[in-house]
């Protein structure tokens, strides 16, 4: 009989982390079931990147520190398909440095993203997990809030989001409005269609929380970015 994972103990996993709610939540889920040994962040210079969410990804370093996890960080020009080579290099580095056996992503519905990461993992002999895959969006958003994830909106890219959403916390007050937008404007409640992006300031597995000390906003025609300029960790 081939040795099962149970026999071999917990699997060492690296979490592909954009700083947004889905990858940080997926990290927490992975921690409940296996051993997360590092975060992996791809910093794209292209704000239209097909694969990698960009606002505030530079501050994943604080999330890693808050979670007590090392971070593998790789820059990419963000050119379609070429950015996969940068991801590939990051995964190879994580495998070499932290002996990861698998990768976790926060993919919910994007076949485009999931397929590319699955192919890379296959090529590199790594397992691939997407614990939020085809999750029930309403339930997920409720759980996210109830479990204490502190999530802010770091970018909006669709109508009817106005400037007031930039930096706004996703909580039990703002969620009903997102649900209304979802019904009336067809946005995906989770923002998976790129309608909005998020950044996580606190999570149940963070030892400290992130405090934003300076930020700036740009907004025009239903598109805007909340850019963190300075931030640090504070006691919870």
């Amino acid at each position: 009989m081939r040795p099962g994972r149970e026999i071999m103990g917990e699997m060492k996993l690296g979490v592909l982390c954009s700083g947004g709610k889905d990858s940080v939540f997926a990290c927490g889920r992975a921690m409940e079931k296996e051993e997360v040994v590092c975060l992996i962040a791809i910093r794209s210079e292209n704000e239209e990147s097909y694969m990698f969410h960009t606002p505030n990804v530079a501050f994943v370093t604080l999330q890693a520190e808050a979670a007590g996890l090392p971070l593998i960080e790789m820059k990419t020009a963000g050119v379609k398909e070429e950015e996969l080579l940068d991801l590939r290099n990051a995964l190879i580095l994580a495998r070499e440095q932290f002996r990861i056996e698998g990768v976790v992503t926060g993919a919910l519905y994007s076949v485009y993203q999931a397929t590319r990461v699955q192919r890379l993992c296959r090529e590199l002999g790594l397992w691939c997990f997407n614990p939020l895959w085809h999750t029930a969006q309403e339930d997920y958003m409720q759980v996210l809030i109830k479990k204490g994830f502190e999530v802010i909106v770091s970018g909006v890219f669709a109508a009817p989001f106005d400037e007031s959403w930039l930096g706004r916390r996703i909580d039990l007050h703002s969620l009903p409005l997102l649900e209304k937008y979802s019904e009336q404007y067809g946005i995906m409640l989770t923002g998976e269609g790129g309608e909005y992006e998020t950044f996580v300031l606190d999570a149940p597995f963070f030892r400290k929380r992130i405090e934003i000390r300076e930020a700036s906003s740009e907004y025009r025609n239903y598109r805007g970015i909340y850019r963190i300029v300075r931030a640090g960790l504070v006691e919870k």
Partner: peptide, 15 residues
């Protein structure tokens, strides 16, 4: 999946 209550359960059974 390879063991009970694995991370794969969320991805392949729950949907």
């Amino acid at each position: 999946c390879y063991r009970e209550d694995s991370l794969g359960f969320d991805e392949y059974v729950l949907p």
